[in-house]
Simulated scan of single mutants.
Amino acid sequence: MKKKFFQLLFAVFAVLIGLYPLKYLLNHGKTGILSGKPDWLLHSEVWQFSFYSHIVFGGVALLIGWIQFNAKLRHNKPRIHQFIGKIYVVSALMSSFSGFYIALFADQGLWASLGFCCLAIIWFCVTLIAYLTIRKKQILKHQHMMIYSYAACFAAVTLRIWLPVLSVIIGHYGTAYLMVAWLSWIPNLLVAHFIIIKGEALHEGEASRCR
């Protein structure tokens, strides 16, 4: 029961934040994080293209990525799983690539930019490896890389959880934002690693009982 509750909560957060880009697509002018950006940056066509590419493709990846962890879908409808997977991979690669560029202009300077740049690089690399491994029929490694990939993708959710909490606790938005540039994804990857290790232990236990 507890597991199903957390799965539902996980899906709800993914869908809600996955739809968050609509806020920027339906509203014109300085809204959300754009309100703190200088005019010279907002008028840059390269930055604008990168920003909207990042949030749209990232939103798609977040919206559909959680579906891929449904075992019944993978086993009973592999073609749907593969189709969704292709959309996710393209979306994740595009969002992470453009995300690296806009991270260079992140608020709060160098250390915040470095945090988000690291996230973009990791997300891009693990997603690409996930794609390459499934092409080689390395299913287990593919699954592990996809867990890491979606953990990085889910930083969009954890960022929006950490930021208001830390802002209240610390009392300074800038400091909170600087911390979130790292906290939004490092714990996610650690949780992903724990899930992978736990899964391998269960698999080895089942294999030993079958011998």
Results as ranks from 00 to 15, higher is better:
6 F>N: 01
7 Q>M: 14
11 A>F: 10
11 A>R: 09
12 V>M: 03
14 A>G: 10
16 L>M: 13
20 Y>H: 12
24 Y>P: 13
24 Y>I: 10
25 L>F: 15
26 L>T: 14
33 I>M: 12
34 L>D: 04
37 K>Q: 07
39 D>N: 15
40 W>C: 12
41 L>V: 01
41 L>R: 09
41 L>H: 05
44 S>F: 04
44 S>G: 07
45 E>Y: 10
46 V>N: 15
47 W>F: 08
50 S>F: 09
51 F>V: 08
53 S>P: 00
54 H>S: 12
55 I>L: 06
59 G>C: 01
59 G>N: 03
63 L>P: 02
65 G>C: 06
65 G>N: 04
66 W>L: 06
66 W>G: 02
69 F>H: 08
73 L>K: 00
73 L>G: 00
80 I>S: 11
82 Q>K: 13
83 F>Q: 14
85 G>C: 09
86 K>Y: 10
87 I>L: 05
93 L>Y: 08
94 M>S: 00
95 S>W: 07
96 S>F: 02
100 F>R: 01
103 A>K: 00
103 A>F: 05
108 Q>W: 10
109 G>L: 04
110 L>S: 14
110 L>I: 06
111 W>I: 12
113 S>W: 09
119 L>F: 10
122 I>S: 02
123 W>E: 04
123 W>V: 12
123 W>P: 02
126 V>Q: 00
128 L>V: 04
128 L>K: 08
128 L>C: 03
131 Y>T: 15
131 Y>P: 02
133 T>L: 11
138 Q>P: 03
140 L>A: 15
142 H>L: 09
142 H>K: 09
144 H>N: 04
144 H>E: 09
145 M>A: 11
148 Y>D: 05
150 Y>E: 00
152 A>N: 08
152 A>G: 08
155 A>C: 11
155 A>Q: 05
160 R>D: 10
160 R>Y: 06
160 R>Q: 03
161 I>S: 04
162 W>M: 02
163 L>M: 12
163 L>D: 07
163 L>N: 04
164 P>M: 11
165 V>A: 12
165 V>Y: 15
166 L>N: 07
167 S>N: 05
167 S>L: 12
170 I>Y: 08
171 G>Y: 05
174 G>V: 10
176 A>M: 00
177 Y>A: 01
177 Y>P: 04
177 Y>F: 11
178 L>I: 07
179 M>H: 11
180 V>P: 01
186 I>K: 08
189 L>M: 11
189 L>T: 03
191 V>D: 06
191 V>F: 04
193 H>Y: 09
194 F>R: 14
201 A>T: 11
204 E>F: 12
204 E>L: 15
209 R>I: 12
209 R>P: 05
210 C>I: 14
211 R>T: 11
